[in-house]
Design a protein around this nucleic acid. Structure first.
Length: 611
RNA sequence: GCGGGUGUAGCUCAGUUGGUUAGAGCGCUGGCCUGUCACGCCAGAGGCCGCGGGUUCGAGUCCCGUCACUCGCGCCA
């Protein structure tokens, strides 16, 4: 017989009754009874019940064997009595009577119980990640992650893509985040950057004629963490294809995404086809370029209703709208009927505190004398006709509530978008059974106004191809943009995939023409030397015959997160870092020996004390 | 960098208006129990109430500071 096992702990069935087997695994749970000690023995595959009788010479040892110790037992498989069958277990029809018992590795008292589904502090979970990973949910998530990646690979290969490995030690890439830098020993004073994405490499692969590239690509960005963004590193299904339009990229990747979500989504509905929402429309309806389409209401721009203070009796919004600002309304269906004033106040408080906004106005709508009215300040003194028109525009009725986000256009929409999500969550209006609501967000602007530097700058990926109407070239469009306003009107072949309010990926048809590239950078205030210096590899390549090409890069971690039904990205990553970008298990980052620094020609300076 | 929340037993949490010896469940240790499967029952051990300072006759509780974790903003496809 094998040294450790003849069967796994998930394998035994009635058909094995009578045979002698050997099992190894972790002591999941023990139940001591007067006549018998029951041990739930667990491995990767499942749980089997092992019975130890007091007559066994190892009874005391088994009884004292701590939870999560690793043991090897041999014994006969017995059928359970009908009333003793456990239908919860695949192996519940049988049990094993232990005839030998060996502790392979005894466990100390646990900092984190493996049994059960209770929640535990992140710090302990991360420090003892190997214990956390033994737990059922996390264990299954990680397995699914592997299966999802496998499925993504198969689907891409089936469409004629080839997987390539691009360099990890490379030069700074253009994604706009902070780089992780790696000092070069052989080139003192110089640094590699870890790739924020294999952006330039994949485009170079197109120039090299490979036609269809993909990679489960590690990406590195030195930015602060969020619940859905782990610090430092993440994986993308990075892909690029030649001689394609935006439509071709959509037709290629949409079935991959939909297919994987159907395969692993546990039967939940998957949107098909993905609706396409222009960026501008997405901002106006949802206050975000990552709309959660499960939420059954949209924003309205109600600025015009507040322009004339004499008709509204509400000076604050009149002042804001006259100054070019916006008032954006967020419906709260049923909130007046179902919620107390505290709910409305709490959202205002949330806006002030968490969103650091001036506040969130609100009005509760009630029936009075056949009309819908509100006693709250924002709408209290409205002219009846104007109020009626406002409510009609928004589709609001008595019993509903409405919030108002007011301020500069971008600020107002941003708060409104966040408020839409919060109102929906607080009122429990997000239909969790709606499944996976995908959409494409398209027609991103090429440029945006950089308030800090008072200039036009790239809004997203600078390598996107500007959109041009029929009969005009991208160069024509750029040349005609002789004012800031016109520059800001230029759209790009840039797109995102969003699912349930989570941004899964972004991509673009690339700008493969060197002259258009220089011009695009010039508009954003960068001279040709910037392009030549920062993006040398790519711009040089474009001078020797570059195919039109485009691609996209869906985030693998976020896909798995959605499929696993968690809103914490750490739940789908094997060994995540904490919010401060520290690996508590491996103690990284860490100081290094002086000799190592010397070899790298690096000196560290003390952190300046805080004032 | 900024803001919110949290911090009490190994873990999850309660702890009222500032008032006697800080509690419960899980886990752990010991005992009991004729078959459990979240077994049950009895007993026990286990506390720098995050840390430092202050107010007070008296602080887990109030005030100030600080640290840690976490969520969000900034940042970031």
């Amino acid at each position: 017989m094998h040294a450790f096992r003849s069967h796994t702990c998930g394998e035994l069935r009635s058909s094995d009754v009578g045979s002698t087997v050997k099992l190894s695994g972790w002591v999941h749970r023990k139940r001591e009874h007067a006549n018998a000690l029951f041990i739930d023995l667990r491995d990767h595959y499942g749980i089997s019940q092992v019975v130890v009788y007091p007559t066994a010479e190892f009874y005391e040892a088994a009884k004292r064997c701590p939870s999560e110790s690793v043991i090897t037992v041999t014994g006969e498989v017995l059928a359970r009595d009908a009333e003793a069958v456990n239908k919860e277990l695949d192996t519940g029809d049988v049990e094993m009577r232990a005839e030998t018992f060996l502790i392979e590795s005894q466990a100390d008292p646990l900092p984190l119980p493996v049994f059960g589904e209770q929640e535990y502090p992140e710090e302990i979970r991360l420090k003892h990640r190997y214990l956390d990973l033994r737990r059922d949910t996390l264990h299954k998530n990680i397995i699914m992650r592997g299966q999802v990646i496998n499925s993504l690979r198969s689907r891409m290969i089936a469409q004629g893509f080839t997987e390539f490995q691009t360099p990890i030690l490379t030069a700074s890439s253009p994604e706009g985040a902070r780089d992780f830098l790696v000092p070069s020993r052989q080139n003192p004073g110089k640094f590699y950057a870890l790739p924020q994405a294999p952006q330039q490499f994949k485009q170079l692969l197109m120039v090299a004629g490979f036609d269809r590239y993909f990679q489960i690509a590690p990406c590195f960005r030195d930015e602060d963490a969020r619940a859905d963004r782990s610090p430092g590193e993440f994986y993308q299904l990075d892909m690029e294809m030649s001689f394609v339009t935006q439509e071709d990229v959509f037709n290629t990747i949409e079935p991959v995404m939909a297919g994987v979500f159907e395969e692993f989504g546990g039967g939940k509905a998957v949107t098909a086809p993905f609706p396409r929402i222009p960026y501008k429309e997405s901002m106006e309806k949802y206050g975000s370029d990552k709309p959660d389409l499960r939420i059954p209401f949209e924003l309205s721009d109600v600025s015009e209703f507040f322009l004339d203070e004499s008709k509204t009796g509400f000076g604050i919004f009149a002042k804001i709208t006259k100054g070019g600002g916006k008032v954006i309304a967020i419906p709260a269906p049923g909130a007046t009927d179902n919620q107390s004033r505290k709910f409305f106040d709490s959202l205002d408080k949330w806006a002030k505190k968490e969103m650091q906004a001036p506040g969130l106005g609100y009005a509760r709508l009630k029936e009075e004398g056949g009309a819908v009215v509100s006693q709250d300040p924002a709408l209290k003194n409205f002219e009846p006709e104007l109020l009626k028109a406002l409510l009609e525009k928004m589709g609001l009725k008595a019993g509903d509530g409405v919030f108002f986000s007011a301020g500069k256009k971008n600020d107002a929409y941003k708060l409104a978008g966040a408020a839409r999500n919060k109102v929906a969550a607080d009122l429990d209006l997000i239909d969790e059974d709606a499944g996976f609501k995908f959409c494409w967000v398209v027609d991103y602007p090429m440029y945006e106004w950089d308030e800090d530097n008072k200039k036009v700058d790239f809004s997203h990926n600078p390598f996107s191809m500007p959109q041009a109407p029929e009969g005009k070239s991208a160069m024509d469009v750029l040349l005609e943009a002789d004012t800031d306003a016109k520059k800001l009107d230029i759209l790009a072949y840039q797109y995102d995939i969003v699912c349930n309010g989570i941004e899964l990926s972004s991509g673009a048809i690339r700008n493969h023409k060197a002259d258009v590239m220089y011009k695009a950078f010039e508009i954003a205030g960068y001279g040709p030397e910037v392009v030549d210096d920062k993006f040398a590899g790519m711009i040089n390549a474009f001078k020797f015959g570059a195919p039109p090409h485009g691609g996209i890069a869906p985030g693998v971690d976020r896909m798995v997160m959605l499929l696993a039904g968690t809103d914490t990205i750490r739940d789908v990553i094997l060994f995540p870092m904490n919010g401060q970008a520290q690996d508590l298990m491996m103690n990284a980052p860490a100081e290094v020996d002086a000799s190592a620094l010397k070899e790298l020609n690096i000196k560290t300076v003390p952190v300046a004390p805080k004032d």
